[in-house]
Simulated assay, not measured.
Amino acid sequence: MKALWNLLRRPSVRWSMLSLLSMGFIGGIIFWGGFNTAMEATNTLEFCTSCHEMRDTVFAEYKQTIHYSNRTGVRAICSDCHVPKDWTHKMARKAKASFEVWGKLVGSIDTPEKFEAKRMTLATHEWERMKDSNSRECRNCHNFDSMSPTIQRSSVYRKHMEAKAAGKSCVDCHKGIAHQLPKEYRDPDE
């Protein structure tokens, strides 16, 4: 009985290490679950439109597009276009997005007028990000190889195949597909 009491009172190094590893493992699962849940919560439409800058400007514009309402009933939400799916790129994007939140906190885009004054800068940053990733988020739903010559109009299909052959990114031709173009925007092809 005394040996059992000593074991319970003062566990061996082996049992201490096992306890430490078990607690670390369980703690890691809890941390990762909480972290992942928080990350996914910031990818919801409700989160993205919780501030008036988004709700009253770009969200209102987006609601008028085919990405919001279409014959198939498939709806793309903010994170479908603005947040990569894979973990590494998602974390990098979330880190950059924290600077956008900073803009809201310090008041640089907290009114419609301030937002419109920065729209070209904000759009340019997003277009550059999309160009650098070869429109990775667009290609989650749209893929040149899946485009049908019998369903698309022939002129549209031809343009898509020309864009594919030229190595163009979706954003090269489709700026303003979900949001208004900035007043200062000039199409380089015009």
Rank of each mutant, 00 (worst) to 15 (best):
R129G: 03
E126I: 12
S154E: 15
H89P: 03
W127S: 01
P112A: 02
K131A: 07
T57A: 09
H52A: 14
R55T: 03
T88A: 12
R153H: 15
S133M: 09
T72P: 05
G33I: 02
G24F: 03
A76W: 10
K168C: 02
R10A: 12
I66D: 15
R55I: 04
D110C: 07
I177W: 11
E184W: 02
S69G: 08
V106T: 10
G107C: 06
A92K: 15
A117E: 12
L8R: 09
P112W: 00
K168H: 08
E113N: 04
N140K: 13
D110R: 07
H89I: 01
L122D: 01
I66R: 14
L4E: 09
M120R: 11
D86L: 07
S19K: 11
C170D: 04
S135T: 00
S69N: 15
K104L: 14
S22E: 00
R186T: 11
K104V: 08
V171M: 07
Q180A: 12
M23D: 04
C81F: 10
W32A: 15
D110N: 13
W127A: 05
K164G: 01
S108Q: 08
V58S: 08
S98P: 01
K96A: 11
N70C: 05
D86M: 08
C48D: 03
F35G: 03
P84W: 01
F35E: 03
E184Y: 04
C138Y: 09
G24Q: 02
M161P: 02
C141D: 07
R14G: 04
I151T: 14
G176F: 02
H89V: 01
K114P: 04
R9Q: 12
P84Q: 02
S154G: 07
Q64G: 06
F25Y: 13
I77N: 01
G103D: 11
F99G: 00
M54K: 06
A92N: 10
K118C: 06
K63W: 00
R139I: 01
S155Y: 10
C51K: 13
L45N: 10
P188F: 03
Y157C: 05
C81V: 04
W102L: 11
A76T: 07
S16R: 14
V171W: 04
G28E: 02
A123V: 09
Q180C: 07
W15M: 09
M130V: 01
T42R: 01
K164T: 02
V171P: 00
C51T: 14
M1Q: 13
G34L: 06
F144S: 02
A117Y: 08
K164R: 15
S146Q: 15
V83W: 06
T88C: 05
T37C: 08
K114T: 04
S79Y: 00
K96T: 09
V58T: 10
H160V: 06
G73N: 06
T49K: 07
R10C: 10
G27E: 06
M39V: 12
M147H: 06
L45V: 07
R55L: 14
R55S: 09
E53C: 13
H160G: 14
E137Y: 05
